[in-house]
Design a binder for these strands. Structure first.
Length: 574
DNA sequence: GCCGTTTTCGGCCCGACTGTTTTCAGTCG
C-alpha cells in the first residue's frame, strides 16, 4: 500500500471534519499526520507497529492508519461521506472560501458542489444569508471564475518571469528604500503558488497606491498599510503577488518571516521561546523588558538567536536548524562553480542549433567544456541518430574543436534505455564515446519492479556514466515513474554511476529531496545539466543550481564543477 | 488529536484584511 494512498484518506478526513466544524486543532492534527505519512521515506504499511514513533502520529491517527492498512479504507471517513456530499471539500480550493462558509452554504442552501454554488450566486441567493452580502457573493463568483481559468501552481521559471516584471516597477519607486523577493520563490521551490515581496518604506500608503497602479494589475485582492495583494498578468501568466510593506529597521525580521517555510519558522519560534523570547514579523520580543528587538538585516536576526545566516534554499526544516546550531551548515554549490554542461542536443536530433552554435554559446558563458549528447536511433520522434550519423557527428565535432580551441567538446550520446533494460546502441559504439548518458523515454507505465530492473540493468553496462532525469517526472504534468529509488541509488554506488539533476524547470529531476537522500545515505555524485535543445537553454542552469542547493549539494558533489582533467578521470568507470 | 528538559492538562502562531457588522467572524499566510 502506497503512503500517498494513506495520506490521501487522512487529508479527506481532515477536510470533512473541518467542514463539519470539528475542533481546528484536531483537524490540523490529521493534516500533520497526513504530511508525515506523505513525506515518510519508508513504506508506512511496513512499519505498522511503530507508527507512534513518527512525529505527529499518536494513538488516534495510528489507529486510523492501521485500519486503512488492514481493510483498505476508513470507516470514519465512509460515515462522514454519508453525512456530507462528497464534492463539498472541492470548494475549499476556492480562494476566500473556507470551511465555515462552505458549511453555511450547505446547511442553508443545500449547496453541494461548484456548479450549484455558481448557480446560487448568479441567482443572488447568497447575499441574503446572515453574515453574507453582495460583495461576498461577487467574490464567490470571481473565485469560481479564477479557479476554472487559472492553474493553482506555476513552474518556477514562469513565476520568476512575473516576479522580474514586478521587480522592475518596484525599483522605480523612490519611496522604497529596499525590497527583496520572499516566500517560496526566494527559496527556489520547484513550483510556485504566488509571489511574495518584502518592501522597506517609510511611506507605505503612497507605495501601496503606486503598486495598485501598475499596468499589469488585473485585480486588487487587498490593500492596507502593511500589505498589498494583487493579481497581475505578465505574458499570459496570471499570478497573485503579495507585497508586505515594513519599516526599514524591521526589514530583516520581515524578510525572514515571509521567506518561510512555515515549518522552518515554527522551529525558529521554538528556539526563540527556549531563549525566553517571542518572534514575530516585526522582531524579537523580550517579555522581561517589554522591548521588541528590531533587525534591518536578516543575518542580525539569525545572530540574535545564536545562529549563522541560513540560506533560503535550506529553510524547509529538513535539518538546517540542527546543523546551523552545530555550526555545520554545508557550503552550497554556486553558479560560479559550474564549468560546463554535459547534456546538450543539436540539429542532429531534436535540437534547433548547430554543434558550433552550442559550443560558441557555451564558450561565451565561460564554460570550459561541454558534451554533445543527441538522442539514439530508436527515439524516432526526436530524430535519434543512426550509427552512421553518429560517425558523421563525430567528424563535425572534430571540426568545431579546431574552430573553437578554447573549449573542450565531449563526444557523447543520450542513449535510450529500452523497455527490457538493454541500450539502444551496441557496446562497441558506446565504448568509443567520451560520455554516455542513458535515459528512459518510453514505456513509462511499467510496474515498479520492471522499471527498477530496467534502470539497474542500464547502470550495469560498463560504458554508461550517467542516468539522466532519473525519475521521469514532469512537474505539474506527469508523476515520476514507479521506481524503487533506494535500489537504484544502491546500484549507482556499486557501479559508480552518476545521477543527473536535469535543470529544465519542467523536470528538476532528481528532486531536491532525492538529491539530499542520495548524497547523505549513499554518498553519490551528481551532474547538473540543462538538456538544452537550443542556445537559449543554457540559461536554465540556474534552476539546476538552485535545486542542487535545496538538496544540500556542495561543489565537490557535482562533477560539472571539476576541471576538465578531473572530469575525464571521473568518467572512467571502474 | 498531539505533545511535553517548565506541563499528562492546556496549549496548539497570530496579525492583517475584508465584509459584514456596530464589535466581530472568517480567511489567509
Amino acid at each position: 500500500m502506497k503512503n500517498k494512498y494513506i495520506a490521501n484518506i487522512l487529508h479527506q478526513l481532515a477536510d470533512l471534519l473541518e467542514i463539519k466544524g470539528e475542533n481546528t486543532f484536531k483537524v490540523q492534527a490529521y493534516r500533520k499526520a497526513a504530511r508525515t505519512v506523505e513525506n515518510s521515506r519508508v513504506a508506512i504499511a511496513e512499519i505498522e507497529d511503530r507508527l507512534e514513533e513518527l512525529s505527529g502520529i499518536g494513538k488516534g491517527t495510528a489507529a486510523v492508519i492501521r485500519e486503512i492498512i488492514s481493510i483498505g479504507h476508513c470507516k470514519q471517513l465512509e460515515e462522514l461521506k454519508e453525512q456530507l456530499p462528497p464534492d463539498l471539500p472541492d470548494l475549499l480550493h476556492l480562494p476566500g472560501i473556507g470551511p465555515k462558509t462552505i458549511a453555511t452554504l450547505y446547511k442553508q442552501l443545500q449547496i453541494t458542489n461548484l456548479n450549484e454554488l455558481k448557480a446560487a450566486a448568479e441567482k443572488q441567493e447568497i447575499r441574503s444569508l446572515p453574515g453574507f452580502g453582495p460583495k461576498k457573493e461577487q467574490k464567490i463568483l470571481e473565485a469560481i471564475e479564477q479557479f476554472s481559468k487559472r492553474p493553482e501552481r506555476y513552474h518556477l521559471h514562469e513565476a520568476r518571469r512575473v516576479a522580474e516584471k514586478v521587480q522592475a516597477y518596484l525599483s522605480e519607486m523612490e519611496e522604497i528604500e529596499r525590497f527583496e523577493l520572499a516566500g517560496s520563490i526566494r527559496r527556489w521551490k520547484e513550483t510556485i503558488k504566488d509571489i511574495d515581496f518584502v518592501v522597506a518604506t517609510r511611506d507605505p500608503i503612497v507605495v501601496a497606491e503606486k503598486i495598485i497602479a501598475i499596468p499589469e494589475v488585473r485585480q486588487v485582492v487587498g490593500q492596507g498599510e502593511t500589505k498589498v495583494s494583487i493579481v497581475v498578468e505578465v505574458e499570459g501568466i496570471v499570478m497573485g503577488v503579495d507585497i508586505r510593506l515594513v519599516r526599514p529597521d524591521q526589514f530583516g525580521s520581515a524578510l525572514h518571516h515571509f521567506t518561510g517555510s512555515k515549518e522552518h519558522n515554527v522551529r525558529i519560534r521554538q528556539r526563540a521561546k527556549q531563549l525566553g523570547w517571542k518572534v514575530s514579523e516585526y522582531g524579537i520580543y523580550d517579555p522581561e523588558t517589554h522591548q521588541t528587538m528590531k533587525f534591518a538585516q536578516e543575518a542580525q536576526f539569525f545572530a540574535q538567536l545564536g545562529l549563522p545566516w541560513i540560506p533560503p534554499e535550506l529553510r524547509e526544516d529538513r535539518g538546517e536548524m540542527e546543523e546551523a546550531e552545530a555550526g555545520r551548515l554545508p557550503t552550497l554549490i554556486r553558479l560560479e562553480d559550474y564549468r560546463g554542461d554535459l547534456h546538450l542536443h543539436t540539429l542532429y536530433s531534436d535540437g534547433t542549433d548547430t554543434i558550433y552554435s552550442m559550443a560558441k554559446a557555451a564558450q561565451e558563458r565561460g564554460y570550459e567544456y561541454i558534451a554533445i549528447t543527441d538522442h539514439s536511433r530508436s527515439l524516432k520522434v526526436a530524430g535519434g541518430l543512426s550509427i552512421d550519423e553518429v560517425y558523421e557527428q563525430w567528424e563535425e565535432i572534430e571540426q568545431v574543436k579546431r574552430q573553437l580551441p578554447g573549449i573542450e567538446i565531449l563526444k557523447g550520446t543520450e542513449v535510450d534505455i529500452l523497455p527490457d533494460g538493454t541500450l539502444d546502441y551496441p557496446d562497441e559504439l558506446l565504448k568509443e564515446m567520451d560520455l554516455v548518458i542513458a535515459s528512459v523515454h518510453s514505456q513509462f507505465h511499467q510496474d515498479e519492479k520492471t522499471m527498477t530492473r530496467r534502470i539497474v540493468k542500464a547502470m550495469e553496462n560498463p560504458y554508461v556514466h550517467i542516468i539522466a532525469h532519473p525519475t521521469g517526472r514532469l512537474l505539474l504534468r506527469r508523476d515520476p515513474y514507479e521506481v524503487d529509488v533506494d535500489v537504484i541509488f544502491r546500484h549507482a554506488r556499486e557501479t559508480g554511476t552518476i545521477f543527473e539533476l536535469n535543470a529544465n524547470p519542467y523536470r528538476l529531476d532528481l528532486s531536491d529531496e532525492l538529491l539530499k537522500r542520495a548524497k547523505e545515505e549513499y554518498g553519490l555524485k551528481f551532474t547538473i545539466n540543462t538538456d538544452a535543445h537550443a542556445t537559449e537553454g543554457f540559461s536554465q542552469v540556474i534552476f539546476g543550481i538552485a535545486t542542487a542547493r535545496r538538496g544540500w549539494l556542495e561543489k565537490q558533489d557535482v562533477i560539472n564543477t571539476y576541471s576538465f582533467h578531473q572530469l575525464k578521470n571521473a568518467l572512467k568507470k571502474s
